[in-house]
């Protein structure tokens, strides 16, 4: 895949520049993904740890409510943020899960920027469509 990012749709791109793009992609994609993954994991470990430390059967009653079919808990994001700062375990875990979903978003955004740098407009269009699809998913989830 040495030529995975060289392009027929771009302007004149030298082989040096193409190699540079590949180097950037291969070096920075893993770093980017791992950094987000580590941050999300730390938040999740803290949240799950606090869940385990909860007393008075709070976790069990939530678990039983989910088993009984009470799955939905749509909250305004401002409230979620405040509860996370306040140390609520479930809000912390939800925040961790949200950070985790940044991994695919960041991956596509990174490729989008690379294709723009290469002026490979067809693939800029494809990655823009994928990014728009991910954002549309958030909107659809909020309203639907």
């Amino acid at each position: 895949m040495a030529n995975a990012l060289d392009s027929p749709h771009s302007g004149q791109v030298s082989s040096f520049e193409v190699q540079d793009e590949n180097r950037i992609l291969r070096r920075w994609t893993p770093i980017l993904l791992r950094t987000i993954l580590i941050i999300a994991t730390i938040i999740l470990v803290i949240g799950v740890g606090l869940m385990a430390a909860q007393t008075g059967g709070a976790y069990v009653s939530r678990y039983r409510a989910i088993q009984a079919g009470k799955v939905y808990a749509r909250e305004p994001w401002g409230d979620l943020f405040r509860q996370t700062i306040g140390g609520d375990p479930h809000a912390i875990v939800t925040t961790g899960l949200m950070v985790l979903t940044l991994v695919p978003l960041a991956r596509v955004a990174f490729c989008f920027l690379l294709f723009i740098r290469e002026r490979d407009w067809i693939y800029v269009l494809f990655t823009a469509y994928v990014l728009a699809g991910l954002v549309f998913g958030i909107v659809l989830g909020r309203v639907g």
Binding site: R62, R74, H90, L97, T101, L134, G137, G144
Partner: peptide
């Protein structure tokens, strides 16, 4: 990316119960 697209819909809908999804992840 595919699973992320679905997960974003579920998360935005408030349909990912933290009590299950946290330990499972």
């Amino acid at each position: 990316v595919t699973a992320g697209a679905g997960a974003l819909v579920f998360l935005a809908r408030g349909a990912v119960p933290a009590a299950i999804a946290g330990p499972v992840a």
